[in-house]
Amino acid sequence: MDLLAVTAFGIVYGVATLVLLALGLAVIFGMMGVINLAQAEFLMLGAYTVLLASSHGASVWVGIALAPIVVGLVGIVIERTIIQFLYGRMLDTMLATWGLSLALVGIVTLLFGPTTEGIATPLGYMAIGRYSIAHYQLFVVAVALGSLALTWGLFNRTRFGLVARATMQNAGMVAGLGVNPSRIYMGTFAFGSALAGLGGAVMAPLTGVVPTFGLAFIAKIFITVIVGGPVILLGTTTAGGVLGLVESAVSYASTPIYGQVAMLVFAIVLLRLLPQGLSGFWRRGV
């Protein structure tokens, strides 16, 4: 019974981390169509924000709250200086963001060195029968749900969200109606960056914070967003749910190697059967 409970929670937790980390990319890649190969470094910058905040005496929570703001601002700078000139030029974007990714890793390594002092996982743990669960894992699940709700609300319940969705569909028409699409692109990119920053920040107290922090996640989150398909929010959540379920369930039953293999095989089969992604045949929306 206790094993069943912790396994079930482990699966929920696996899904939550995947969705949380993939959400920023879902906005930037899924919605805007920008293949941002520096997304891993946005996660890393979020993690470093927490690290810097805590090494300057602030609490981990302050760091986690600051991370989306900091990375969002970084996103604005990057969008204005690089991305805005490359919309619609997929290969050029990939090249530029790949360079950006290498540069960010290099800069952070130069500034802070290849190893840095990390942050211990805050909060305690609770026992479930013979097993135990860290309270922080509950927090991760809560943050994932919160960011999902926030993103959904922003794109479906606000004027900015409406205009943003319209801009992605037909920027010319939006411009004709008197809205500057360039601003909207910037805002959406910043929001995607901020979400990535939050994801990285939340993961920081669970893993080691090193300049190559994001590399461990990047393949998985790209797969999640691609499998998710065109309906970005629900698609990404469903994909995160399905892939996370497969990976966690197989990891629990055997080892993490088979978990990863199973997830990749599942993703390939899924994309073969549904080339548009899981949400390819759904009604369009966010």
Partner: peptide, 8 residues
């Protein structure tokens, strides 16, 4: 590249 050790 494994960072989630929950199942382990």
């Amino acid at each position: 590249d494994v960072v989630n050790f929950d199942s382990v």
